[in-house]
Amino acid sequence: MDTATPAVTVALHDGTAVVAESTRVDARRHGELLLPAVDRVLKEAGTALDAVTGIVVGVGPGPYTGLRVGLVTAAAFSSALGGVPVHGLCTLDGLAYASGIEGPFAVATDARRKEVYWARYDDARTRATDASVDRPADIAERLAGLPVVGAGALLYPDAFPDARGPEHQSAGALAALAAERLAAGGEGFLDPLPMYLRRPDAQVPKNYKVVTPQ
């Protein structure tokens, strides 16, 4: 599952293929939508949560509030199920995998505040750089000539003239990538911890303000 972008997306993968998937794009209702989506996917697949042998979660980067919903849900599932492993994947990796692009390209998601979260890829399975957060104009030159995948690219066509889909994250792609890595020995996962890339907005209140009129 992944809640790091406006998509609330959940999928069940049986090691061979995606059995069921639910993706809804609603940036403001991650908390409400995630558990009903999990329930829908499991019911559609005719199974129950305790049959799951691993949980894959997108760790971001992403706007914080939604991102935390997926991460705490994955951690709580694992704890409640007696320690089912949780595998973290960079959210951008899911979009890269879903794009199926062979040559070098980049992925960009919307970071709000006129910025994008982005990373470069050598191919659909291989991320070449750490994820960063930048203004589109500031990275346009570095990514010139490359296809750029995702909502962050489609939002800024001036900076990313070769913007491409998929626009939104799919848990099916994330699960398929994870299944490949697990089958290959289980390398290439991140700790299931949030990738914020920004420090919290914390203003130290100004020094005590004098209230007596001067």
């Binding site: 991650h30 908390g31 995630l34 558990l35 999990v38 329930d39 949560l49 305790d50 914080y64 509030t65 935390r68 919903v69 705490v72 849900t73 994955a74 951690a75 709580a76 599932f77 704890s79 409640a80 199920l81």
Partner: peptide, 17 residues
């Protein structure tokens, strides 16, 4: 809101699991 959401999400996950 953001603080509540962490607890609510965890509670839902435990209850469901």
């Amino acid at each position: 809101a953001g603080a509540l959401l962490v607890g609510v999400s965890a509670a839902k996950a435990y209850a469901y699991a």
